[in-house]
């Protein structure tokens, strides 16, 4: 991240998965590194299982808080189908870091649509079994820390600073679990 002028990260997932934590951590990290930074998220329906996306943009000077289609350096996806849904936001040569978790959307549950098969083949990037690693760390809820660990490694970001940003954003009593999850994610990619 240090070598690059501007870095645009799109975070996608399913409402309730805790995607907002990831953007908060990235924002904090960027701020401490002295970057200009803008985050944008759409609240409202987010809690209720809908598809959600958050933009994180950092660099020497950031104007728009929104990442355009074809503009993301990296997509951090907390669910596989969501990674595919927003794939067209990726820049040429960009990377998708995704959790291999599958969450069925309502049209699939009701039988109106099928969950696409072979998504991995369509995604230029790296899959992480974040759910399994989170359970190993202690709870399914730690999946976002697993993904952040993996992200830190992929970005070549300063590990200590990144981890400190994460720990500053979570409740005190979950520090141990999230640290472990972060390490597992870091080691997974």
């Amino acid at each position: 991240m240090a070598a690059k002028e501007n870095l645009d990260i799109l975070i996608v997932g399913v409402g309730g998965q805790g995607t907002l934590l990831a953007s908060r951590v990235l924002g904090r990290y960027a701020l401490e590194r002295g970057y200009d930074v803008k985050l944008s998220e759409v609240h409202g329906m987010a809690q209720r299982g809908g598809s959600v996306m958050t933009y994180v943009r950092m660099g020497s000077r950031v104007a728009s808080p929104v990442i355009d289609e074809g503009g993301a350096d990296l997509i951090l996806a907390f669910e596989k189908l969501e990674a595919l849904r927003y794939r067209h936001y990726l820049k040429e040569g960009g990377h998708i870091l995704y959790s291999t978790q599958e969450i069925m959307p309502m049209p699939v549950v009701t039988g109106a649509a099928a969950y696409p098969q072979g998504i991995e083949k369509e995604l230029p990037g790296t899959g992480v079994d974040a759910l399994a690693l989170a359970l190993e760390a202690g709870n399914a809820k730690a999946a976002n820390s697993v993904m952040l660990g993996a992200l830190c490694k992929k970005l070549g970001a300063d590990r200590a600073a990144f981890e400190a940003a994460l720990l500053a954003c979570i409740p005190q009593k979950t520090v141990e679990m999230n640290k472990k999850a972060f390490d597992l994610g870091y080691a997974a990619v």
Binding site: R48, L81, R87, H88, P116, E122
Partner: peptide, 12 residues
């Protein structure tokens, strides 16, 4: 822009 992938919607 490139067209989005044709995938099932995920409404709230």
């Amino acid at each position: 822009a490139q067209a989005p992938a044709d995938v099932p919607a995920r409404p709230p």
